Simulated scan of single mutants.
Amino acid sequence: MEPQVVQGQCFQFLVPPGWRVLEQGQFAVVQADANNQAVAMMTGNCGFMPGYPPLQYAFEKLSSNGPVQFGRPRPGQPVANFEAAVDVDYRYVVNGVPCVGIATVSYRQGYGQVDFVLTAGAAQEQYWPSFATWLPGLPKQFNVIHGAAWGAQGIAQQNLQNSIQFGQQLELQRTWSEELQQQVTDQRNASDERRREGMGQILTGESWYADPYGQNPPVRLSNTPAVYWTNRHGRIVSSDDPSFDPRTPMDSDWQRMSGNG
C-alpha cells in the first residue's frame, strides 16, 4: 500500500499505511504506527530572538514527555526553505519504557528573528532497529499550505508594524505585541500538551477511564484488559473477556467504564 497524502489545516503530509494522525494544526503534525510502537513529529515556531540555540529549542520540545538525553550533535539536512540544520540522537524513558529516536532542528534567520522546525522520529527501544532507517525522514515529508503555519503570519504582521513611524509604534506595538506573544504562547502550550498526552498513551500502553457515576476524577489504567467495571464506591475490576459483567442479583450497582475519559 502507498502512503496517504493528507491535507491538514496548515500542512500537507504523508501518512504510512496503518498509521494514524494524533494531531495536526497550526504548529505541529504528530502521527503513530498501528502497533503503538513508534511516533513521528513535526513542530515549529517562528519569531525567536536571534542567537537562540537550536538544540535548546529541541530540548524544550522533546523533554515535554520527560527527561531527555542527547547524544553528540552533527550537521543535518534542513527542511525546505530553511538554511541549516542539526541532527541529534536522543533517548528518554516513559513509565519505565525506554525510547530512542533521532531529531533534526532546522533553522533560518529572518528580520530580527530566527525560526525553528523540529522533526523527530522515536520508538520503543526494542523496536527501534525496524524503524531507524526510515522513521526520522517521515516527519520531513510535508508542504506548508497556509501562511499561519508555525505562527509566521502573526510574526509577519508584527514586522509590518516596524514600518510605522516611531512615535506611533511605541504606543501601538507595545500592547499589540504582548497580546500576540501571549496568543502564540498559549497555542504552543496547548499543542505541546496534546502531543504529550497522545505520545504518553502510545508509548506506555495506558488510557484515561471516566467514572460513569461522575463522582470521581478519571483514572489512568492499562490498555491490556478488555473491560473495566466500577461501582459507586470507587472499586474497579477488570477482565480480559469483553463480555465480563460483575453484576449479580445481590450486587447490581456496577457500570462499565469508558476509555479516554
Rank of each mutant, 00 (worst) to 15 (best):
Q4D: 11
V6F: 08
V6Y: 06
G8M: 09
C10Q: 08
G18R: 03
G18P: 01
G18K: 05
W19N: 07
R20M: 08
L22G: 15
E23D: 15
Q24H: 13
A28H: 04
Q31A: 08
A32C: 11
M41D: 02
M41S: 04
M42R: 14
M42K: 11
T43E: 13
G44T: 07
F48E: 03
P50T: 07
P50D: 04
G51H: 07
Y52H: 13
P53R: 06
S63N: 10
P73C: 07
R74K: 13
R74D: 03
P78R: 02
P78L: 02
P78W: 01
D89N: 12
R91L: 02
G96M: 06
V97A: 05
A103W: 03
S106I: 07
S106T: 05
Y107P: 00
R108C: 09
G112M: 13
D115T: 04
L118S: 05
A122R: 08
Q124D: 05
P129S: 07
F131E: 04
F131R: 04
T133Y: 01
W134F: 15
W134P: 03
P136C: 04
K140D: 00
N143V: 08
I145P: 07
A149W: 09
G154S: 10
Q157A: 14
L160R: 12
S163K: 09
F166Q: 06
F166G: 00
L170C: 02
Q173S: 15
S177N: 14
Q181Y: 12
Q183D: 12
T185F: 10
D192V: 12
D192P: 01
D192K: 05
I202R: 10
T204D: 02
E206I: 05
E206F: 01
S207I: 06
G214M: 00
Q215P: 00
T224R: 14
R232G: 03
R232I: 01
R235E: 10
V237H: 02
S243T: 14
F244D: 10
P246C: 03
P246N: 04
P246F: 05
T248R: 12
M250D: 15
D251R: 08
W254D: 01
Q255D: 04
N260R: 12
N260H: 12
G261K: 10
